[in-house]
Amino acid sequence: MNTLLQILLLIAVIAIVMFVFNLYTSLLGKISQNSIKKRIAKGKINDKQLMNLYKASERSRRGKLMAIFFYGIFYKSFLNMQEGNYLVYKEEMERRGLLERAS
């Protein structure tokens, strides 16, 4: 019975750690997206930089191998962060009318 209790406790601890890490990566993603939005709003990113950032984020959001290498079993959290950044860049590219030139 003692071993069963230890196994259940271990599973609970792992679940809590995974939940906390998920919250951390969600918060990190939101902070990153807000930072990008502020830089765009202040005009610190010109059209050429925006196109380069858009292309880089497009490549990185498809890189599952790199996500697995960096985050291990939490690779989906990394991909979600990259997808959010990609959407911010894509939205600004559409607003500026640069999406056709980037293709």
Rank of each mutant, 00 (worst) to 15 (best):
N2D: 15
N2G: 10
N2H: 10
T3S: 10
T3Q: 11
L4C: 06
L5Q: 10
L5P: 01
Q6N: 14
I7C: 05
L9A: 15
L10W: 06
L10Y: 13
I11S: 07
A12R: 15
A12I: 12
I14V: 14
V17M: 05
M18A: 15
V20A: 15
V20D: 13
L23N: 12
L23P: 04
L23F: 11
Y24F: 13
T25W: 03
S26Q: 14
L27S: 08
L28Y: 11
G29M: 09
K30I: 08
K30Y: 05
I31S: 15
N34Q: 10
N34C: 04
I36S: 10
I36L: 10
K37Y: 00
R39N: 15
I40K: 09
K42L: 10
K42D: 08
G43Q: 13
I45C: 09
N46I: 02
N46P: 07
K48N: 12
K48L: 12
K48R: 13
Q49C: 09
M51A: 04
M51V: 03
N52P: 02
L53N: 07
K55P: 00
A56W: 02
S57A: 13
S57E: 10
S60V: 03
R62G: 04
G63R: 13
G63K: 10
M66E: 04
A67Y: 07
F70E: 10
Y71S: 13
Y71R: 04
I73A: 09
K76R: 06
S77A: 14
F78C: 14
L79P: 01
N80L: 11
N80S: 04
M81S: 07
M81V: 12
E83K: 14
G84D: 00
N85L: 02
Y86E: 02
V88N: 02
V88M: 01
Y89C: 00
M93I: 10
R95G: 01
R95P: 01
S103P: 00
